[in-house]
Nucleic acid binder design. Structure first.
Lengths: 215, 215, 215, 215
DNA sequence: AATGAATGAGAATTCATTCAT
DNA sequence: CATGAATGAATTCTCATTCAT
């Protein structure tokens, strides 16, 4: 049924996208969708398989086990996200711009890939084991990226040098994650504009909040 | 709430009809401890029972099922927390003070009851079902409490009237939750002072960040 | 609640009916009622206790275990029933009369004590173990009583001497039990007259059926 | 009965899509054996599995739950029995012959498949729920088949028109079931001839018993 | 004697994972 | 490579029974 729906290449891009990569991708995509809807623990491997249009056993040709599927989502997606973010931050001309990139990217993620967002905000915390062992390093990397922006702001004299960049980064991430969570849990009908507005307000609050105390 | 209903001795007076309350408490306390260490899904009912020093079946005399144990932790503890918070916010003389109460209380919770904190920050999100059905209302109540503080700040002309109190509340909660999470997941050896410092910085950042734009 | 509802003597009759006997009786009566409604295996000991207005543990003061309650119902009630039947058969003047006594008594049992009837027809067969170990002897006794009536009929030259009294007895019991079963399972609204008519027809069929072949 | 339904090779032809049917059959056969020996409630699903030579979980690939196994035995076997019976009754030339077919078939069932007989006579009544919900319709169908034979006898003027066909059918079934029960419970060593003799006597008793009263 | 809270052995069922085809 | 039937370990929950009060 959903077997032959993409008769041609996945996205042509790359060129290393062989059949097998296709299937791996398909499984990941299906998993994101199902995890988002039902949560990691309430999702059956067979459900992922069905959603991906493959047999149960096929999952195990691409992933060691169910845990590995969730882990791979993080590793794949978040790594990709980090790359994009890193580049955009680099390209942004000023501290203010860089911070806005962070805010808008993290929240913007939602609009395009709501399922992934839910997986990241909710499922991320489902298994302490997974969280601590696998997600933590990537999470740390993400925080450090934001922290580096803060450090930059401090070097430019914009950000209060007394503030711990790591604390600020964590707080910013947490604030955005919180907004994402309430949005994801809340009325799904609420327009995306709400998110945009929230993003903008967040950026302002943090920009003003971290500003070097003049006095 | 149910904390001070027995203002006197724990198990002295009466000795009848009390035991059951004790046991329920014991089970909840044990559950918090085990959930914190292993996560909700990796915790066996028998482990809670053993930690509580009761038989497996006894759990079911006090809770309908394993889910209900987690739910009860939220209902009991968070309700209690809300009560305390509400009172302290009331007592705080100014907007600044009220905001600091929120920050310090939410983070202060950690120092005393790290396990509960981990359950709240991590386990809270373990089951979409639980999260959406049971935790959401209490969570909303919590957010609204913070939002009411923001509204107050706006009335006093301290907080930028353009900001959405709900967004600010969510962001503040998220920021604090994020800090708590990294602390809970991070090196457990890190001194509590780190938390206090983070709390203080957060309060400043938000206080400055939400301040009415003078222009 | 249902504790003190019978402040005086049970039925005064007997005189050996001490308190303890009262309670045993009450439990048996309750058990018959509940077994009839839900079946032996779907009945909880606590349900019997509640129906009897006693505590769960009290059941065990009068019966060794749940099985013993069911067994006791048979031993008590069926023994009593056998006694009555034996006497009435004795009193009946002719073979025909005796046979009618059997038919009417076995079916008549239903009208007065439908619950007991359901326990006997349905629950009797619920546990192979019980059935084989405990009910079988009484059942055999019952069959032998009927068989003795058949033997009498044969001695009087009314019943075909070729027929096995045991087979006839078994068949008669089975026929009546079958009628009882369909009645018990069928529309409960069906008037008791239906049973009476069936009883009468059965008596005729068997009386004619077993008659000595004249030829 | 279900023995020779695949007149050719057991597992040769095809080799595909068969296995599952085989396994279902195997489980049912095993269940009949175990239920007969220990009763429905005293049988563990794992015992059925072991007897069938499959894993516990495999049972659940073919049946929704333990109840469904018992239900399926009835539905499968009794449906098959009804088919055979219907045909043979049709083929029998006279009322007398038809009645003998009923008697011999119902009892004959025993000789070949004693276990099935015990399941039908004893286990049939184990769960009121099962009995009332699932077995009742098939049972009713069975009774109606017999009743139709009686009606035929009445049309031919052989059977007393005063008799209720349904009552007669129920009685006949009950009588046969009773004989089967005592045989199944009784000394297993008793030769099958005993059953044949009983069958023959039953047929005579009923044939004479229901005969139109001449006079 | 009576109670009913507590017990814990036991059972049905699920579902991640395997492996013969 | 892919399949999906089969596996069986693992887990929640039930409920007959006990025993301190």
């Amino acid at each position: 049924m959903s077997k032959n729906e993409r008769p041609f290449s996945e996205d042509a891009a790359g060129g290393k996208g062989r059949k097998s990569t296709d299937k791996r991708e398909r499984i990941l995509r299906a998993a994101i969708k199902v995890f988002a809807r039902k949560g990691f623990y309430d999702t059956r491997v067979s459900e992922i398989a069905k959603a991906a249009g493959v047999a149960d056993g096929t999952i195990y040709l691409y992933f060691e086990n169910k845990d590995a599927v969730l882990i791979s989502i993080f590793e794949d997606r978040i790594t990709k996200l980090l790359g994009v973010l890193r580049k955009e931050i680099d390209d942004a001309p000023s501290f203010e711009e860089k911070l806005r990139v962070v805010v808008e990217r993290q929240l913007g993620l939602l609009e395009g890939q709501r399922d992934l967002a839910e997986v990241v905000t909710v499922n991320l915390r489902q298994s302490s084991k997974l969280l601590k062992q696998y997600a933590a390093p990537l999470f740390t990397e993400y925080l450090e990226l934001i922290a580096s922006v803060v450090v930059l702001g401090q070097r430019e004299g914009i950000v209060d040098p007394e503030l711990s960049p790591r604390v600020v980064a964590t707080a910013l991430w947490g604030a955005l994650d919180g907004i994402a969570l309430t949005w994801a849990l809340g009325d799904k009908a609420s327009r995306p504009e709400a998110l945009r507005r929230a993003a903008s307000q967040m950026a302002s609050v943090f920009l003003d909040g971290v500003r070097a105390r003049r006095a």
